[in-house]
């Protein structure tokens, strides 16, 4: 349909362009919260949309995650053994329900992924305090469906990577310079809908539960 392309562009190009005042375009909201404030806001926002937030540190995060798995009664946990967290969890597999590694293409184990995985665990690229948001970039190790298909999503967030706003995260992490992945994702709670009479319901298509472990 290159005819359509030519015709559309020709029509658009034939117009005398409006002169617009775009001075306001770059203005950035200035919030300067310290780390404690960021954690506080992030937690508040997440909990407001029924996500669980757990605090931990470098020393006890592993136990925390193990405990969560136990509380949830998970039979298995899907994760990548190659991330910082996944490595340690894999080394301590005894503490955890059966670990599944996302090693094959989705086509090769779609049925199992869809119907036999209890929870997916992912790392995160960062978090946003203002909106209570996790940043996830898809990668060969941590594919998109890892945080989407299982009914529970456990995400580990390094609090050093908690930014005030989305704009700040994009800038500080240099998204533009790095080049975007196939899928960059912001997650701000468990899947939800208010389409039935404005009553909030969770777990419509994505995970019913979102569990965030702050490290």
């Amino acid at each position: 349909m290159s005819n359509a392309r030519t015709a559309i562009l020709q029509r658009l190009n034939s117009v005398e362009r409006p002169v617009v005042d775009v001075s306001a375009r770059e203005s950035l909201s200035v919030v300067s919260w310290d780390k404690a404030e960021c954690i506080h806001r992030f937690t508040e926002r997440m909990q407001a949309v029924r996500a669980e937030v757990h605090r931990s540190d470098r020393g006890n995060w592993l136990d925390k995650v193990a405990e969560i798995c136990k509380t949830k009664g998970l039979n298995n946990l899907l994760l990548s053994p190659k991330t910082e967290w996944g490595q340690v969890i894999t080394q301590n597999a005894a503490q955890f329900p059966r670990l599944k590694h996302y090693e094959r293409s989705i086509e090769d184990w779609k049925e199992e992924l869809f119907y036999q995985v209890d929870a997916g665990l992912t790392s995160t690229l960062g978090g946003i305090a203002e909106t209570g948001t996790l940043i996830l970039w898809s990668s060969p190790d941590e594919p998109r469906t890892l945080s989407l298909v299982p009914p529970i999503h456990i995400a580990i967030l390094d609090t050093d990577k908690l930014y005030t706003t989305f704009a700040k995260a994009v800038k500080t992490q240099g998204w533009l310079e790095q080049g975007l992945p196939t899928n960059a994702l912001l997650i701000s709670g468990p899947s939800r809908s208010a389409d039935i009479a404005q009553v909030l319901a969770y777990g419509v298509h994505g995970p019913r539960e979102l569990v965030v472990v702050l490290v």
């Binding site: 949309v49 899928n183 912001l186 701000s188």
Partner: peptide
Amino acid sequence: PITTYFNM
């Protein structure tokens, strides 16, 4: 404040 997912 934000939707659950913002998918890029």
